[in-house]
Structure formats: structure tokens, C-alpha cells
Design a protein around this nucleic acid. Sequence first.
DNA 1: AAATAAAATTGTAACAATTACAGAATTTGA
DNA 2: TCAAATTCTGTAATTGTTACAATTTTATTT
Lengths: 141, 141
Amino acid sequence: MKVYEYLTSYNIKPSVQRIAIMDYLLKHKTHPCIDEIYLALSKDIPTLSKTTVYNTLKLFVEHGAAKMLTIDERNACFDGDLSRHAHFQCKVCGRIYDIPLEEKRDEEAESMIQGGFTVEEAHRYYKGVCPRCAAGNAQKS
Amino acid sequence: MKVYEYLTSYNIKPSVQRIAIMDYLLKHKTHPCIDEIYLALSKDIPTLSKTTVYNTLKLFVEHGAAKMLTIDERNACFDGDLSRHAHFQCKVCGRIYDIPLEEKRDEEAESMIQGGFTVEEAHRYYKGVCPRCAAGNAQKS
DNA sequence: AAATAAAATTGTAACAATTACAGAATTTGA
DNA sequence: TCAAATTCTGTAATTGTTACAATTTTATTT
């Protein structure tokens, strides 16, 4: 299985729950929060505990297999896409969009490293209103 | 008084509490959280309620007189510096540093606007270890 | 200046996201 | 198969934030 090896490549011991959660992350680019993942997977794994979802995502982030987004004030979101990209959250519907970044070096990060900082994460995000909502098709996701 | 007019310029009716909170924000570039502000000002204003600090900062953000940072997962931080700049949070001591941004246009934002997005906020931040902590002088702030 | 209305502040209670923790279940390794 | 280690579960505790009603303060009208 594919996700199985993906997890092991990050030194994460696979389990039914971990595979299901990573699989969900890789297949749903919606930047889901804990609850979304929990509710979706509970259908297949009825015994799933929300604590496990918390623990597992924390594990993923620690092993570098997922990223945590703190764009949304209310709750943390998670991203299985590890490529360099920015995010945009619509203030109306709450959706988080992926925004491609021009491939160019990050001068700020470079000068920080010069200044003695160790840079482990770089986040960039925007907020505003998405085209969908601007068009009046506002709908809570 | 200076802060008084500063508040009115943002259409915020000044009060003892609001002036004290804005004054604290302008004088302390530490990106304080609610609790830091509350604890610091309680000494001068013993009747101050934490709810007031919450309400007031929400008001400031709505009127564009302050910015809320969601870098720290545990609690929101606030910044009275409205100029364009990035932030760096040290994972060891938790300090949030200001990082100057080269003055150049934000191509990503521009292309998003082209794509129909309304961009109201742009955030950029980094995480890692600061020089102080790297040198071993780790100390929780 | 007194009375009234409006706005701001306070404190408690409710709420929601997250974490701690101990017991149950599962996996691993002899 | 049995013991040890790991993972998972569910409840309880914790914490940041918000709702709300009562009180206080400020502004307005008479």
C-alpha cells in the first residue's frame, strides 16, 4: 500500500488509524481541521477517538509529514501538501485556498539566517473575500 | 494627550481603558497576548476586567488600529505596529521578533487580485530558533 | 444641575478547542 | 504463547475565548 510506505519514509509506524488519517490528508486538499477529519473517518472507523486524531496529527507534524496552519483563529488546520505555497482564507466562507508562489529565493529568510536565526518554517497567508463569495454565492463550507 | 488623538483618528472613542491598552501596545513591541496586557495594566487599573481587554482589542482590530497575530498556537498576540513587516517566533523562548521586509511589490497578492480575490490582509512569518537561544541563553519570556 | 438615555465596563457563567491521564486493546518480540 | 511495549480510547481537566446581564460611566436633554 502506498500510504503505508509514505508513513514509514517519515519514520512513522503505520497503524490503521494513522494510515486513514494520512490518507485523508493526502486526498483532501481542503486543509481540514481536527473535527472534519474525525467526523469523516468515524464512519469507517467507528471506534476512532478524537484524542487519537489530535495525537496522530501532532506526530505527523513532529515528523515533518504534515504542516499545521494557524490561519483560522478558531481551530488549527492541517496540510499534507509539503510543497512551498501560500494560503488564502476567505473571511466569508472560511475556505482556505492554495496560492502558488513564484519560485524565487526567500531573501528575508536568508538575511535572518545571516543574523543567526535558524529558520525551520516559513508561512505566508492572505485573508479577504474569495471570488465565489464576492459573486454572492456565499456558502459556509 | 497623544494616544487620545490616535484613537479618535481611527474612529475609536477613547476611554481610560482603551487609552491604557493602546498605549501599552504602542510602547511594548513584544507582540503581547491578552494576558500580558491584562496583567500589566491591572496594576494601574485594578478594576480592569479581562473581558474589557478582549473587547477592546477586538475593537482595535476592527477599526484597523491593531493587528492580530496567530503565530502562536496557544493564544492570539497583538501588534500595534501597522507597517509592513514579517515576524519570527522562536520555538524555544516563544519571543516574536519583527523582521523587516524588502520594499517590493507582492506579486502573489497582485495575481490573486487578478484572479478575483479581494486581499485584505497579508501575513508572513517564520519559526525556528533565535540567536539568543541558539547561544544557550534560553529563557522563557 | 437633575433626569434620562446611551455606551462602556465588569464579572460570572457558558463554551469550545486542546491536553492529561489511566485503562483497554493491539502489536511486537522472545 | 506469554510478556513487554506501543497505540488507542474515553473521560476529565485545563485553557483561551465569548455571551450576557448587571453595574458604572459618559453623553444628552430638559
